[in-house]
C-alpha cells in the first residue's frame, strides 16, 4: 500500500463508506471497483486458492456493507478493510482445518507466478515457485500474514504495524522469525 496514494484516496474511501452507512449500494459498487483486486490478492496470499480468495474478497465487501455503521471515520479505510479480509481468511482456514483439508486444493498449485519473462531460466524458476508455494502454505497463519504484507504487498513497517495493531519492533521481530521458518521450509521442500 502506497501511503501517498492512501492519503489521496482516503477522503473518497471514507466518504464512500459514509454513503454505504446510509444503505447506498452504488457507493458500495464504487468502493468495490477500487479495491476488488486488492481484496482478492490479500486473500489469495493467505489461503492460496483462487476460487476461495475470490469468495473471501466478495464476503469482505458484504461485511463492509453490513458493518459500515461500526466504521470509525476518523481512521483510514484500508487498514480496517485489510483486517476484515485477514479475519475472513483466518476463519476460512480454521474451517478447512476442521474439515481436515488444511492444505489448498491440489489443482490450484499456481497461485503464485513468476513476474519476469526470461525463458532461459524458466525451469529453475518453476522449481522455485513450486518450493515457495509449498513453503508458504505450511507457514503458520501469523507468519504467512506478515510475509504476505511485506514481501507481496510491499508495505512499510509502519503500515504493517497499523494494520496488525502491533508495535514497529514487533513487526521486525515477527518478520525475522517468519523468514527463518520460510527459509527452513523452502530448504526442506527443495531437498524433499
Amino acid at each position: 500500500m502506497d501511503i501517498k496514494k492512501e492519503k489521496e484516496t482516503m477522503e473518497t474511501d471514507i466518504s464512500l463508506v459514509m454513503d454505504i452507512k446510509t444503505g447506498n449500494k452504488q457507493a458500495l459498487g464504487r468502493l468495490v471497483e477500487r479495491h476488488k483486486k486488492l481484496a482478492y490478492q490479500i486473500a489469495l496470499g493467505l489461503v492460496g486458492n483462487r476460487d476461495d480468495a475470490f469468495d473471501i474478497s466478495q464476503e469482505a465487501f458484504l461485511r463492509v456493507y453490513r458493518s459500515a455503521k461500526t466504521y470509525d471515520e476518523s481512521q483510514p479505510f484500508l487498514p480496517w478493510f485489510y483486517r476484515i479480509v485477514v479475519n475472513l481468511s483466518r476463519t476460512w482456514l480454521k474451517r478447512r482445518t476442521r474439515q481436515r483439508k488444511r492444505m489448498v486444493d491440489v489443482d490450484d498449485n499456481a497461485y503464485l507466478l513468476v513476474d519476469t519473462h526470461d525463458p532461459e531460466q524458466d525451469l529453475i524458476k518453476a522449481e522455485m515457485i513450486s518450493c515457495l508455494n509449498r513453503a508458504l502454505l505450511e507457514l503458520p497463519f501469523e507468519d504467512r500474514e506478515i510475509v504476505m504484507l511485506q514481501h507481496f504487498r510491499g508495505m512499510s513497517y509502519d503500515e504493517i504495524a497499523g494494520i496488525l495493531n502491533i508495535p514497529r519492533g514487533t513487526v521486525m521481530s515477527r518478520l525475522y522469525y517468519a523468514r527463518k521458518k520460510l527459509a527452513k521450509l523452502m530448504e526442506r521442500s527443495n531437498n524433499g
Partner: peptide, 26 residues
C-alpha cells in the same frame, strides 16, 4: 525469490462480472 513472484490474476471476464455477482449475493 519472492520479489520475482506475483499473484495469479483471474480472467478479465471474472472481474467484469464481479460487481453483478456481489450484488446478487447482497
Amino acid at each position: 525469490v519472492t520479489g520475482l513472484m506475483t499473484y495469479a490474476d483471474l480472467p478479465e471476464e471474472v472481474w467484469e462480472n464481479y460487481w453483478h455477482s456481489l450484488y446478487r449475493k447482497l
